[in-house]
């Protein structure tokens, strides 16, 4: 079963949308990844609740989740549960447990860096746990280098510049689908419509497309800026 993101081109490449009950990896090193993850999770969860698993370190380094910010994205903060754990090992363990809960729509597992415990076996375990029920897991990799994994899709996310002049600031992502187990890859600028809760192709896409940069797979923003510059 798939759930459409709302962005026509991306959905067609994905074969109709994001696969439910699967592992999706999101790489980035700024807040854009969190935004993309939570928006995608909102699409996938429907009316069910989400669990965000966050390490204490990530909360310090990248900021804690602000419920008011969720409300501003058009997502009801009451539907969000947050689990704070001390280390990546606990985070993985909690994620596998949470994936066995019917009541959840998605689990967002935020892991900073490249901890040893998150290897191919661990990601395979997450995939198996997710397949078992219908809970989707987003693995949010902050400041990490891509490694082999069992993920269904892998995204590289960057913030994209606003183009609207008066009311700028709508979440815009330069999203690159770097890996897709069931099809082609691609890159798009995706805008999150906070009122309707869908991803959109920005209105100014045609004029803007020249700016989209292939973000490097190692996730380093400096490299991206170098290419862009």
């Amino acid at each position: 079963m798939r759930r459409a993101l709302g962005h026509g081109d991306a959905d067609s490449v994905l074969g109709g949308g994001l696969l439910i009950g699967a592992l999706h990896e999101i790489f980035a090193d700024d807040a854009a990844a969190s935004g993309f993850a939570v928006c995608a999770a909102q699409r996938v969860s429907g009316t069910k609740r989400m669990l965000w698993i966050i390490q204490d370190f990530s909360a310090l380094e990248y900021g804690t989740l602000a419920p008011t910010g969720f409300a501003e994205l058009g997502i009801d903060p009451s539907r969000l549960l947050m689990l704070r754990v001390a280390n990546a090992e606990d985070a993985l363990r909690a994620a596998v447990d949470a994936l066995s809960c019917y009541g959840l729509g998605t689990v967002i597992l935020e892991i900073a860096g490249n901890p040893k415990v998150l290897d191919l076996v661990a990601s395979r375990r997450l995939v198996l746990a997710a397949q078992h029920k219908t809970v989707t897991i987003f693995l949010l990799r902050q400041g990490a280098v891509a490694e082999p994994s069992a993920a269904q899709t892998r995204w590289q996310i960057r913030s994209d510049r606003s183009t609207a002049t008066d009311d700028w600031g709508t979440p815009r992502f330069a999203a690159e689908l770097v890996r897709n187990r069931q099809g082609k890859t691609g890159h798009w600028v995706m805008e999150w419509n906070c009122d309707d809760g869908v991803f959109r192709k920005p209105d100014d896409q045609a004029a803007h497309s020249g700016f989209v940069v292939r973000a490097p797979a190692d996730g380093s923003l400096a490299a991206a800026m170098r290419i862009a510059g």
């Binding site: 909360a59 310090l60 990248y62 910010g69």
Partner: peptide, 23 residues
């Protein structure tokens, strides 16, 4: 039990509050 509702966003406007806040 929740006694208050979350402040509703203003339709059509970009988010006014950040998604992540530094502690």
């Amino acid at each position: 039990e929740m006694k208050l509702d979350w402040e509703a966003r203003i339709p059509g406007e970009a988010p006014r509050r950040p998604l992540r806040m530094l502690a």
